[in-house]
Design a protein around this nucleic acid. Structure first.
Lengths: 158, 158
DNA sequence: TCAAAAAGGGTGATGCATCATCCTTCTCAG
DNA sequence: CTGAGAAGGATGATGCATCACCCTTTTTGA
């Protein structure tokens, strides 16, 4: 290997390329989405998750599990989305503590338009330039890293 | 392939795993760095870039090229770092428009401590669970995506 | 059975990222 | 030589991400 505290050239190249790509891609994607649909990536994540439900609705904690977000982040995001009229908060019948989050008609329309645009975008900027072997390798790598992260710890909130 | 506007199972798996991994990793990394060293990832990027210079100093636009950030982002980041005493802004001799950004002693000490910790962290959470083949594949993939992004457009600021 | 912890959810403050806009100095083609 | 645009850099506002902390209801184990 290399000394602790140092990276080999190969490692440095890969890590740096990955970091850069990931940042640029996220920025580019966010901008594109915002321009084309008026939604942020965070909006898109929430809306598309609700959209996949038969009743366009989920409890906050269910949304949180699917998104792998932290409590506070999702609460704030929902609050902003409520003021924008994208989703609504309703008290939950079963559990007086609970809140049911539901797509508004406006939210539904927005995400219905956004999804195909975004999928095409992902294909254009990402999938089209990646070989099948690279794609499978990336999937395996990602899952390995995720495993390692989540077994390593959990920050007491999630 | 698949219909436009849809992803195959293979594509969906890889894209979703990548997105999730990337987000979780960034969050985890940021938290770790903040706990261990008191620096944000943005701080780390700026400080380590200055630190690699012989005189611990760069013009704003040089810093911007190396970081691949946008003007406004870097200006704001520097302003915050100045108030925290991590770097200082000095007028530039050659060009009255220019600003020279230099590490303060405190900034130098912080980054000197942070770098080996962070490298070890990267090894632990990422490099250790990735095979050499996967690493090379990731590097190639990342460079291809980056190429595709930057030829595609430039947002008139960078 | 009843207190303590866990689960569900929220608030305010702060730092970070981006947009729109602005100012000054420099460059260069006409 | 000069005026237009480019380059270097800054500001204020807004949305997003995280931290520390809070409240209420539900579970649970002693």
């Amino acid at each position: 290997m290399t000394e602790p505290g140092e990276l080999s050239d190969r490692e440095r190249r890969a890590w740096y390329a990955f970091l850069t790509m990931q940042e640029d891609l996220r920025r580019h994607m966010n901008r594109q989405l915002l321009n084309d649909t008026g939604l942020s990536l965070a909006d898109y994540a929430v809306l598309s998750t609700l959209w996949m439900q038969p009743d366009n609705s989920l409890r906050v904690f269910e949304l949180r599990e699917r998104l792998r977000w932290e409590k506070t982040r999702l609460t704030h995001q929902i609050s902003r989305m409520v003021t924008r009229g994208q989703v609504e908060r309703n008290p939950c019948a079963d559990d007086p503590r609970g809140q049911q989050i539901t797509l508004t008609p406006a939210g539904h329309e927005a995400i219905t338009k956004a999804v195909p645009l975004h999928i095409d975008y992902v294909r254009r900027v990402f999938l089209d330039v990646v070989t099948p072997r690279q794609l499978d390798s990336l999937a395996a790598l990602s899952e390995a890293v995720l495993d390692n992260l989540t077994t390593d710890e959990d920050p007491a909130d999630t």
